[in-house]
Amino acid sequence: MPDTKGLVIVNTGNGKGKTTAALGLALRAWGQGLRVLVVQFIKGNWKYGELKAAEKLGPDFVIRQLGEGFVKHAKANANADHQSAAQTALAIARAEIASGGWDLIILDEINYAVKFGLVTVSECLELIGLKSGQMHLVFTGRDARPELIDCADLVTEMRAVKHPYQQGVKAQKGIEF
């Protein structure tokens, strides 16, 4: 049995914290000298706090925000923009995984991209096939497909129990973004 193995990790479920958990893992990895890349498939054009933090961590902790924003509430005519952005993110993910330049790559909200038909589950499985034996690859987002879950070494499902939004509290700086 090997001492180390590049893991495939899935953070899914309807609860809050999938990206947050992945970023916590990324911070831990960076602290141990690993090179970390986060490719964001949906998030775009918002200034999330993690972007500011990553800038301060230097070239071994990079977040690439490539999405067009939330797909669920997008206007019908914006779907082509979302499709194009997701395919660009997918191409970048392929190239970066194949490059071997990173120890941990997080494909943030890629499960949403699959759910909304912007990326296929077979394309996700292809990404797993591209990774080196030591690279860790993390997939985040609700509704992870069973095929992805079957391939993963570690799957965590976040379950919503209670959320301040249910009491009318809007998203807060430093907590949700």
Rank of each mutant, 00 (worst) to 15 (best):
Y112R: 00
I106M: 06
L25W: 07
D3P: 12
R64Y: 10
E176W: 02
L27E: 04
Q172W: 02
A22L: 10
A85E: 07
N111S: 07
H73Y: 14
P146W: 02
S99K: 01
Q65M: 14
G101Y: 00
A29I: 12
H73D: 14
C124A: 10
M1F: 13
F61W: 02
A85K: 00
T156N: 04
I97L: 04
K131L: 09
G141A: 12
R142N: 08
I105N: 07
I9A: 06
R64D: 11
S132C: 08
V39K: 05
F41R: 00
I92A: 11
E176P: 00
S84C: 13
G49I: 07
L34F: 15
G174I: 10
Q65R: 07
D143V: 07
K162L: 02
R64W: 11
L37E: 02
I149L: 14
K18D: 03
A54I: 06
T20F: 12
G67F: 08
L27H: 02
S99F: 10
I110C: 00
D60L: 09
A74D: 09
E50V: 06
Q167F: 01
L66W: 03
K162M: 00
R35T: 10
Q166S: 14
L23H: 02
R142A: 13
A21K: 05
E55P: 02
L137M: 06
E109Q: 06
L148G: 08
N79V: 15
Y48Q: 12
V36C: 07
S122N: 12
T20D: 06
A22Y: 01
F70K: 02
V8P: 09
F70G: 09
Y165N: 09
D143P: 05
L34V: 05
C151E: 15
A80G: 01
H82C: 12
T12E: 00
P146N: 04
E123Y: 10
L66M: 15
L25K: 01
F61S: 03
V36M: 08
A53D: 05
F41H: 01
M1N: 04
D81Q: 14
R145K: 15
A171K: 09
M135E: 13
E123D: 15
V161P: 08
I110A: 08
H136N: 15
G24N: 00
K131E: 14
E50D: 11
K170S: 13
I106G: 02
